[in-house]
Design a protein around this nucleic acid. Structure first.
Length: 416
RNA sequence: CGGGGUGUAGUAUAGUGGUAGUACACAUCCAUGGGGUGGAUGCAGUCCGAGUUCGAUUCUCGGCACCCCGACCA
């Protein structure tokens, strides 16, 4: 893409009303736009990052055998009354509104109810199980206080996955597989090293639920980390779990962290309340055992920015970068320099390399500063100087080392 | 939800009970062309409402919005 066609502009200064690094860089770079407190829209660069993250998630969901769906945001009040989750006394972060008729509807903050209810139409036999469904969809939560930039929003994208199993061992096996899938996702987006499986408050059907907490000062939870086992205990259950659940040590280090994902065992609570049953091998009526697995996309992106950035801007991990290469033409209007840059842009594009081509009529310093802010991992510079020295300069974002690639290598050059 | 704070141009900020200033951005021009270049000219603003006052962007009250701390976070 030509940067001259990119409608977003970078900003030199961070907005006065953002303190979180993730929001400051994402807004300065033109990735997102703030609509109101806790509500952010995605702009072209941000959307490209989002699509990369979605791609990584979809791949892992596919490996799990989950099928993708896309449910509505508007929710039927009767459904949620059935499970006793409509009352504001029970769930206080609902956004509710009314139809013209006066009938109340809710904006979904999660989707156990509608998905369970839908399956009454499609799930009848043990042969239909196990089954897992996921979506990447907008959730609404009426937070009393939005904070930490894009980390705690009132409207946000969530990947939510729901599993339906016949037996407890079958459920537990899937639950463990999801842990592995989540690990792969965090590794792929570049926060695997800072993200820890964390034991948190369970519920009716299990002693614990599991959270995936990414250690960062921008987080709002406190976890107690066992450095050896690389698992943690959420402070909220520290009164009942004072030691590492894996090795038993009491030497735990408190850390600030953000919950990027969580997984729950739900048992038959929703299936029973909504009367979702199937016929088992013996022809008897049975309830499927459910699990629910969430992953906040904006939080994930926010956490990546918090971890992968320096004073100049973002340093995107390759897998989530909006483009693979930032090609900068420092031509000052000189035809021969521009010609080489255009040739390189065409050559890379033809080979399927995604390139942000800074073809703007701007000075070198401004282009470099923008490139550092936007944070694409590879930077290629074509200039009169580089051509005189023999070719094109290549540099990795976040590193000082520059290599010179001969112009003749352009048609075949690949990034390591 | 409790406590605290802030609303001035597209952005970041200064200031004043009496014509609102600076920087960046933007527009035009000249010079320049490897780390946000120099210069000239131009465009653009006091959150909304009420009150006090001869006069309010400034003071008072109300509203709205935003931020921070805490509580909350199926």
């Amino acid at each position: 893409m030509r940067q001259s066609h990119l409608f977003t502009k970078t900003r030199r200064e961070a907005p006065a009303d953002e303190v979180a690094k993730n929001a400051q860089f994402l807004i300065r770079g033109g990735f997102v736009h703030k609509e109101m407190a806790g509500v952010y829209s995605f702009l072209p660069l941000g959307l490209r990052v989002l699509e990369k993250v979605c791609g990584i998630i979809r791949k892992e969901m596919k490996t799990l055998g989950a099928e993708e769906i896309f449910f509505s945001s508007l929710q039927n009040r009767v459904l949620w009354q059935t499970t006793d989750r409509w009352d504001d006394e029970r769930v206080d972060n609902w956004f509710k509104t009314k139809m013209k008729s006066g009938t109340e509807v809710g904006l979904g903050f999660t989707h156990e109810e509608p998905i369970t209810a839908m399956l009454k139409t499609h799930l009848h036999s043990f042969r239909d199980l196990p089954l897992s469904l996921f979506q990447i969809q907008t959730k609404f939560r009426n937070e009393t206080r939005a904070k930490s930039g894009i980390m705690r929003c009132r409207e946000f994208l969530m990947k939510d996955l729901y599993s339906f199993s016949r037996t407890l061992p079958e459920h537990e096996a899937f639950y463990e597989k999801v842990k592995g899938a989540y690990r792969n996702i965090f590794d792929a987006v570049g926060i695997g090293g800072e993200t820890f499986l964390t034991f948190a408050a369970g519920g009716t059907f299990s002693k614990y639920s599991h959270e995936f907490q990414t250690v960062t000062e921008a987080g709002e939870d406190t976890i107690h980390l066992c450095e050896k086992c690389r698992v943690a205990v959420n402070e909220e259950i520290l009164h009942e779990q004072k030691t590492c659940p894996v090795c038993g040590t009491a030497t735990l280090t408190p850390k600030r962290a953000v919950e990027v994902g969580n997984i729950f065992s739900l048992g038959t609570r929703f299936a029973e309340a909504l009367r979702l049953t199937y016929r088992d091998e013996g022809g008897k009526e049975a309830f499927p055992i459910m699990g629910s697995y969430g992953l906040g996309l904006a939080r994930l992106i926010g956490a990546v920015v918090e971890i992968h950035s320096d004073s100049a801007g973002i340093i995107w991990p390759r897998n989530v970068s909006p483009f693979e290469v930032h090609l900068i033409s420092v031509d000052g209007g000189k035809e021969e320099v521009r010609g080489v840059a255009e040739e390189l842009y065409r050559s890379l594009s033809e080979r399927g390399v995604s390139v942000l081509f800074d073809d703007r009529d701007a000075r070198a310093g401004e282009k470099f500063a923008d490139a550092d802010l936007i944070g694409i991992p590879y930077r290629a510079v074509v200039s009169e100087r580089s051509l005189k020295e023999g070719g094109i300069e290549l540099k990795e974002r976040g590193r000082e080392h520059i290599v010179l690639v001969p112009k003749s290598d352009i048609p075949t050059f690949t990034f390591a």
